[in-house]
Design a protein around this nucleic acid. Structure first.
Lengths: 120, 120
DNA sequence: AGCAATGTATCGAGTGGCTATACATAATCT
DNA sequence: AGATTATGTATAGCCACTCGATACATTGCT
């Protein structure tokens, strides 16, 4: 656990999905992927660098992303972008995730009903 | 992977949540938990015995479920039921899951839009 | 008698996330 | 100028976990 009240546990099954989804609109480098997840989730999804980079390397090895170093700036940056296969994979996994959520919803709804609403 | 087109990957982060949720209406034994998940998910969620029993033992150790052997029938059955702490834990995890889903929804919606609808 | 379903359990292999650590550059503060 | 913080990528090792295979016993069916 750790990380106080974050989603570390739940993220286990969808880490690659999280990473791939941040690349949907174009290339990003690792640190920027972290920031994107953090910001777009209202500071709730925090992916550790030690988790992120191994995932990126694996995705690269699986030809789902393509990487290239940025040599123009003094700062070393490795940009990742979806390959065609990567985009297809992302769509497949996203669809699968939506279906899985629907499955769980049925099981959890009776529990969630009768519970106080979350702070919106 | 394996298991063809099931949710093995996605389930990784929510296996204990799945198990606990089947106990919400009363005690069940392992095999029955498997059947419940399978049936209530339209045959899509299949938890292997090799995954289920270690989880149940861990939950028991964590005092989230209480187990007792059924001695009346010839068939060995170990019934599990939620403890007070277990029910609280379940509610907490269910809430957390709902919030996490909402986070991901935002990231995935643009990808899911423009994709063919699933077979309902 | 033979086979499938029911029922619990464990082991070994493979995977995979996370903490800690390392290293380097740019920007900001004092 | 020196120190600290933010930016940026990467790896090693520990730990936890999932799953397929396997084992064993009972019940029901043919």
């Amino acid at each position: 656990m750790r990380q106080d009240e974050l989603y570390s546990e739940l993220m286990r099954g969808s880490l690659d999905l999280l990473v791939l989804s941040t690349l949907r609109d174009g290339p990003k480098y690792g640190y920027l992927i972290q920031q994107t997840l953090r910001d777009e989730s209202g500071q709730r999804i925090r992916m550790q660098a030690g988790s992120l980079y191994p995932i990126l390397h694996r995705l690269e090895e699986e030809k789902l992303v393509k990487a290239s170093w940025d040599s123009t700036t003094g700062r070393r940056r490795k940009w990742y972008e979806l390959t065609a296969a990567g985009r297809k994979h992302l769509q497949h996994r996203a669809t699968q995730w939506r279906d899985y959520v629907q499955c769980l919803q049925g099981l959890l709804q009776p529990i969630l009903d009768g519970l106080p609403q979350p702070a919106t």
